[in-house]
Amino acid sequence: MHLSPIMRIAIDCRTLLERKTGDRTYIANLIRRLPGLTPENDYLFLLHRPLQEAAEDTSWLACLRAEIHVVRNPSPRTWTAVSLPSFVRKHGVDVLHVQYIVPPVCPCPVVTTIHDLSFYRFPQSFPPRDRFLLQHLIPFSARKAHRVITGSDSTRRDLVEICRIPDGHICVTPYAADAIFQPVADASRLRTFRQQRGLESPFWLSVGVLQPRKNLTRLLRAYHQVLQKNRDVPLLAIAGKRGWIATDIFREVVRMHLNERVRFLGYVPDEVLPLLYSAAEALLYPSLYEGFGLPVLEAMSCGALVLTSNTSSMPEVAGDAGILVDPLSVDSIADGLSRLLHLDERGRQEVRGKGFERASTFSWERTARQTAEVYRQAAPRDLASTALDAPHP
């Protein structure tokens, strides 16, 4: 006997077609788990282009108990406002889940995940047009949505302050490192990888899009400061695609004559990152602002030591397992680098152990369960009460 689903939930999965970002990591890990954790619901995963155009591997989607729909629109600018509500109405969707921007009018309740409000805290990190749109659309979307999901208490506080929405309207569902992030113990494989990347010498690692918010200019100045006092300093490898105003970073390297000490690796795909983290002495992540800071957990899961900022969400993520610095102070970052440099082997193992323990406290399965509960809260009352009574695996 076929039982009707309790809820039909549509999820905007367009970021699956792009190269790795925090938004893509979030949605990929969520939809991997939701159908199995809540089989009583029907899940519809929505794309704007065919899967064949994806920048990363999406073959795993075929194993999920879900419908995949390509919702086409002649203009990408009207996909959310026009195509999405039309699809929802036609397919009898009970709850729609998007990231950031919600449709201005929608026939069903909408849940939005807002990962951060960096466009407000650090507007200089965005091109003027993007900044203008985000500063208008995100607060509107936060107030329009039935529920707002975010990954940290830091961003929850920002949402209350900036978007003027009630605290009870927001659900914090902390994220986690993907299961692929584990130490690579094969010494031969690591050695080959390092040779291929020109990283035979010990190196510190920075990961993230090359943009002002990642604070690479101050990191480079702090690195240069440490080099003046001690030449036995690891190389600095910077992994990430070019973003807004990236040229300032390259100029700083030239100005401080760091060309022989700094390696720009460009964009690094997911499958390579565990090798990079495992080979690195430490991750340097003194970002000015993060909604969550996934690289901190990724690095800890692979056994790398972590230096990160004492602001926004990063203390929540790192706990006592990372070296925390003031990202606005070059001297503070330099002091943190010196602490890394002078850790003996026993100290390194102790910090590494704390990192493994800290990373293990975060779970995508827990995130998915909490998200399913948000759907239930956002659903029409009759569906929500039915979902509450449904058996769960």
Rank of each mutant, 00 (worst) to 15 (best):
C163Q: 06
L343P: 02
A28P: 04
V272H: 10
G319M: 01
A372D: 13
S75V: 14
C13W: 14
S201P: 06
D153I: 01
H91V: 11
L340D: 15
C108Q: 11
P183C: 03
P234T: 05
V325M: 09
A359D: 05
A282I: 01
R14N: 15
L205Q: 11
L84R: 12
T371S: 06
L44H: 15
L307D: 10
K144I: 02
R121C: 10
L16G: 08
E252K: 03
Y267Q: 02
P327F: 12
R143H: 07
V207N: 13
V262A: 08
P286V: 13
E271K: 14
P85W: 13
H91P: 02
V325S: 08
P50Y: 11
T371Q: 08
I101V: 12
P107L: 14
C171Y: 05
L84V: 05
N73H: 14
Y285R: 15
P127I: 03
W204K: 04
P35H: 06
F45S: 08
I149K: 01
E290Y: 03
W79A: 04
S154T: 05
R352K: 09
H48I: 09
P85N: 15
V233R: 15
G303D: 07
F264V: 00
Q195M: 07
T217K: 08
V325C: 11
L305P: 10
P202F: 06
A378L: 11
W364G: 08
Y26K: 10
V253F: 09
G208K: 10
F193G: 13
G168M: 01
P234R: 11
L288S: 11
D320K: 08
T367F: 02
R369K: 15
A66L: 10
V111P: 05
R221D: 00
V172K: 12
T58R: 10
P393K: 07
V110Q: 13
